[in-house]
């Protein structure tokens, strides 16, 4: 049995788009994130939503829903106006701080949110060396009394005052 070019071309298109159509009908074709983070699978925190799985596409509302961190605290921590905070996405932090963070090797973005949330709900998380959080975020964590001495020392060298 021989397959000619025109038949192969048609088969390729049918299989790809037919497959997409079929999986769309049964609900398997998802091109966006479900906004439900993975859970920690073992140890003391097993079953808890993992801050490490926060994606850049998560809005502050998604984080509030999954981690019980208030939108007001997130907005105050990262200097986001309260009016736009509910829909504000983590990945937009980089653009927000693009002109303010001038030192090389410093990033305030999605990983900063992961770090802040992890500290807020007292789950261990190791951020990237380049990840910084604003001092306003540190103040909120201090007020909540969730930081130990080691974390306070680390944050002294990994926080930035963006109000100046």
């Amino acid at each position: 049995m021989r397959i000619r070019a025109n038949v192969l071309g048609i088969l390729v298109v049918i299989v790809i788009f037919g497959g997409i159509a079929m999986t769309s009908v049964i609900g398997l074709w998802n091109t966006t994130n479900t906004k439900v983070p993975a859970q920690i699978s073992s140890g003391k925190y097993a079953g808890v939503s993992d801050p490490a799985d926060i994606r850049g596409s998560y809005s502050f509302t998604d984080i509030n829903r999954n981690f019980d961190v208030s939108i007001e605290d997130l907005a105050a921590a990262f200097g986001v106006e309260e009016s736009i905070a509910p829909g504000f996405k983590c990945k937009d932090l980089e653009a927000l701080y693009a002109g303010m963070v001038e030192e090389e090797g410093i990033e305030i973005g999605t990983d900063a949110v992961r770090f802040f949330v992890a500290l807020y709900i007292e789950i261990p998380y190791t951020p990237a060396e380049s990840t910084f959080i604003p001092t306003s975020a540190v103040e909120i964590l201090k007020e909540k009394g969730v930081l130990d001495d080691e974390q306070l020392t680390y944050l002294e060298s990994h926080s930035l005052d963006l109000s100046k």
């Binding site: 299989v15 497959g19 997409i20 999986t23 398997l28 074709w29 091109t31 993975a38 994606r55």
Partner: peptide
């Protein structure tokens, strides 16, 4: 779970392409 930025559609396409 899937790697960050990857969605279920990538898995679907992976299976379709494996079939092809």
């Amino acid at each position: 779970t899937l790697v960050q930025k990857v969605h279920e559609s990538s898995l679907v396409l992976m299976y379709i392409v494996i079939l092809l």
